[in-house]
């Protein structure tokens, strides 16, 4: 296949398969950290349900696709500082998701990831 060697544009929604969504929405620490950023929803549902619902909802998936495209266009580099991911600036500028992911993990281990405000 002639396309095999070429970089493909990755949609980060691809990482959220059923298994990933299940494990994310049952991770109580993650739930706490994501709760403030969830869209408004039926307040009688628990956070786990709301996260699961959000991750599988079209508006979120559209946003994540759009983020993926933006990331791979290399145009997000300048935003990294603002997003508290200054260490991923160069990686984001390269427009490669895996390079970006590695940079974030390195930053996380070094403890330089800023919390969202």
């Amino acid at each position: 296949n002639i396309l095999a060697g070429l970089p493909v544009e990755v949609d980060l929604n691809q990482m959220l398969d059923e298994a990933a969504v299940s494990s994310l929405s049952s991770n109580s620490q993650l739930l706490q950290q994501l709760r403030p950023f969830l869209p408004p929803g039926s307040e009688n549902e628990n956070t786990s349900e709301r996260l699961r619902e959000t991750l599988t909802s079209p508006p979120f998936q559209q946003a994540l696709s759009s983020f993926s495209t933006a990331l791979q266009s290399g145009q997000l580099g300048s935003m990294m500082d603002q997003l508290g991911m200054a260490d991923a600036l160069d990686a984001a500028g390269q427009g490669d998701v895996t390079v970006f992911a590695r940079a974030l993990e390195t930053a996380a281990r070094a403890g330089t990831l800023q919390d969202n405000t």
């Binding site: 994501l34 950023f37 869209p39 408004p40 909802s57 508006p59 994540l64 508290g84 974030l104």
Partner: peptide, 18 residues
Amino acid sequence: KRDHNYLPMIVQLLKCLA
């Protein structure tokens, strides 16, 4: 839900996963 800004959530999710 449609009008919600998902960027902070996406960024937070990526950081948590990292």
